[in-house]
Write a protein that binds this DNA or RNA. Structure first.
Lengths: 221, 221
DNA sequence: AATCTATTCAATAAATTACTTGAATAGATT
DNA sequence: AATCTATTCAAGTAATTTATTGAATAGATT
């Protein structure tokens, strides 16, 4: 094989990976699967896509080796094929957040409309946790908490928060976290908590970011 | 703005980044620009593309904020907009190398045909360098060496190597490096050196990988 | 001012991609 | 064995992407 054909082959293969990530819907799927494995139907539901369309996108991700499957009972569970995928996604996400002004603008506007004016980063949080005056609240759906969560966090999915708010200590700062910077669960939770006079702040990043940093987590399987 | 529209906007913006990387030719351009800035014509030449086509690909990369330009004299120089881009590319490249068997197969076949049966990684090299019995040889084009190279490496572009081989000490191991794992300059150099009874090995990674690791480099502007 | 040069733009054709709809399949469950 | 269910496949359409060619532009250089 000569040089040009060699390079063409190698770069074409690599483009299968980036090609798999080149679509907004598939990025959203990757972001979602970073929380843990999910069935096709669940993914379709979360991303507001038809099941057939979701399935096709998943095939593309699988062809690019970004996801793999596990058959269980009547379902097929899709999951990221390695932490490297979450890492690539995070790097791209952070690059976009720092370089594409439009992304920051949209995020800022969206949060302002919910009166969410501040957030705390993981690095800032670690300092605050020393004092012991914060509670880490996981507001993702329960199955995601069960699949893996920040060590010593407690789980109240955002849609149950109103009913279960009494479980939270009123004298501590509540740090609500969810899937990541573009997930709105924590925004909604913080807005609700504030309405009820809690001192609440959202964590800027999500569980996958915490895990990628090698910080303490509790995982199930 | 409601939740779905918000997510659609954010992920669409982010897909501009991965979309820019989703094409084999553009990946090759990124790999090339990781060596340093280059004019459109140079990029076209190196990637065997027409200038017009190269220009269009560069527009896509620019729209995704992956590259930026500098006008100088009659030329426009393109460069990566940040080290983050090289980092994303490296992560994707490593993921592909570890996950896509076809890539490894093609690389292995190509090198075998040149009798290149071994290579040394950066981590392995660092151990070897302790003894002082190795020479680091940069076989990329001179302008890339000038733009930035591994500290204490010497420059002999591969196409001059036959003429200038006397500059190399015959009693030391020559570690030849180039642009990265898919670059063939180091393979060609090692093959040539071995023919002339040098003890030569290629570095698996390239200059950008060395630089990303924070290892000592000498940069020009 | 005229010319030259590097780069971009515009128009086109061919190929690929995304989504929809409805049917097919393969594995459980009854 | 028949049925049910989750997922994939297939066909079709509209939209997007890629590469080619040749013209346009903007900035140097003469």
């Amino acid at each position: 094989m000569e040089k040009r054909a060699y390079k063409d082959t190698v770069f074409a293969e690599l483009a299968r990976i980036s090609g798999a990530l080149s679509n907004p819907r598939r990025l959203e799927i990757v972001d979602l699967l970073a929380q843990g494995e999910k069935t096709v139907e669940k993914i379709a539901l979360e991303t507001c896509m038809s099941v057939a369309n979701t399935s096709q996108h998943l095939q593309v991700l699988k062809a690019g080796s970004l996801v793999e499957i596990k058959k269980q009972g009547n379902h097929i569970y899709y999951r990221l094929s390695s932490d490297k995928v979450a890492e690539i996604w995070k790097l791209m996400r952070d690059f976009g957040t720092s370089r594409i002004a439009e992304i920051n603008r949209v995020v800022k506007d969206f949060r302002e409309q919910k009166q969410i004016l501040e957030s705390v980063t993981i690095d800032e949080l670690i300092d605050k946790m020393e004092g012991g005056h914060v509670v880490l609240l996981d507001v993702r759906p329960e199955e995601e908490y069960l699949s893996g969560h920040i060590a010593r966090s407690i789980s109240i999915p955002v849609e149950q928060l109103l009913d279960r708010m009494a479980e939270l200590p009123p004298d501590k700062t509540i740090i609500a976290y969810c899937r990541g910077p573009f997930c709105v669960f924590a925004d909604d939770a913080v807005a609700l908590l504030k309405e009820h006079n809690y001192n609440a702040v959202r964590l800027e990043e999500g569980f996958p970011d915490w895990k990628l940093k090698g910080l303490p987590v509790e995982m199930n399987a």
